[in-house]
Amino acid sequence: MMDIIMNISSAVFLLIGSFLCVSGGVGILRFPDLFTRMHAAGVTDTLASAMILTGLMLQNPDGLVILKLIIILLMTLFISPTASHALARAAMINGLKPMLDKPADHEGGMSSKT
């Protein structure tokens, strides 16, 4: 009985994770500029990874494997914000301007919603 519940919940977690992964991939193709694409990549980096790794944890109730999966999860959650912050900052410093929705308030402003 316990096994069936574990299997079903693991399958549900894996499916939700896969769906979120694909959503992030679609977002990275459909969004118009770098900064908005970064938000789409954020979806795959946070919740999708967490869901898939949780699904794997439920597959195998063996202590060492679960601890290693938790280490991978923590690493992803610590690394991904740092990497996206560094990316956004480097892009800003090197002069890439984000596309903004508001009417531009300075000379030769950005294009509005396309």
Partner: peptide
Amino acid sequence: TLYDRILAVNMFGTKTVLLISV
């Protein structure tokens, strides 16, 4: 731009981590 490419490669890398574990 270059930064789009870096973003894509970073995403590719995190997906590789997931793929290896699965």
